[in-house]
Amino acid sequence: MSAGTSYRESTARERIARFFDAGSLEEWLPPSARLSSPHLPALGLPVAFDDGVVVGAATLLGHRVLFAVQEPAFMGGAVGEVHGAKLTGLLRRALTDRPDGVVLMFDTGGVRLHEANAGLIAISEIQRALFDARRAGVPVVLVAAGANGCYGGLSIVGRSADAIVMTEEGRLSVSGPEVIESQHGVEEFDARDRALVWRTMGGKHRWLIGEADALVDDAFGPLREATVRALATPVPIDLATVRAAHRALERRLRRFGAMDDAVEIWRELGLEDPEGVPMAEVAALVARADTIREHGRG
């Protein structure tokens, strides 16, 4: 797909312009505010005047939302002190602004190692603020469709949202392939085997086992529509809901825990031609697997 229609190949600002309703955008702390990392210059590294994340308010198909969109090209979308505080502040604004929802478009390796401690703490603060927004009745949706994937602590934060919208090219995982390979060797995970990466961490597998709630093509129209649908189904934070999620995860461990590869899991789910899943059209896969796939929250 060309950069004009592909979410994955777009920059953060292109994504915002094409994702939200034309003329509805209001950016908070834009680059003219000159809020950049105070820590990168000490390491001789360049800064960005938005610290790699754009936050603000907009409408999405008429729904009032707050948004945060990470810039994939700046430090791999990683979270530093300022970047993280923009995300936390945005989610806290949801408590007073009462939007119809918050849309988080993560495209990230996780913690920015150059600001390691501040990044990790910020990710915890983002998670707390996300839970507070949900508790206050503001649904939060993660769009995981970017070039970097959604890795590290932000994958845990993203999975704490009400719903996750993915493309098959999007990836969601705590540890990245390179990290696993560097710790345990190429036998454990060959990070250069792109097919292995997609089928282990990619959107199709995540949707099939219930880590993601919607799977759509890498194009703005389908992503917009899936996000609006996800905003309409908030998940309460209560005992009955986490009990149901617990049963769903127990079932996942029981059904798939001994399996070594995604293809085995897809066969166990009852998909005909599991080997053909990576090549299948998204719409066709969704049509034939929607009733047999697993769900993460029961």
Binding site: I180, T200, G210, E211, I237, D238, G257, G296
Partner: peptide, 26 residues
């Protein structure tokens, strides 16, 4: 750090754990 844990969706398990604590807090 393992292929199996990521195949099963470790993000979902760790997020679920955090959400259980969040329910306890609430």
């Amino acid at each position: 750090l393992s292929r199996r844990d990521e195949l099963l969706g470790n993000a979902g398990f760790l997020a679920h754990l955090a959400e259980c604590f969040e329910v306890a807090r609430g």
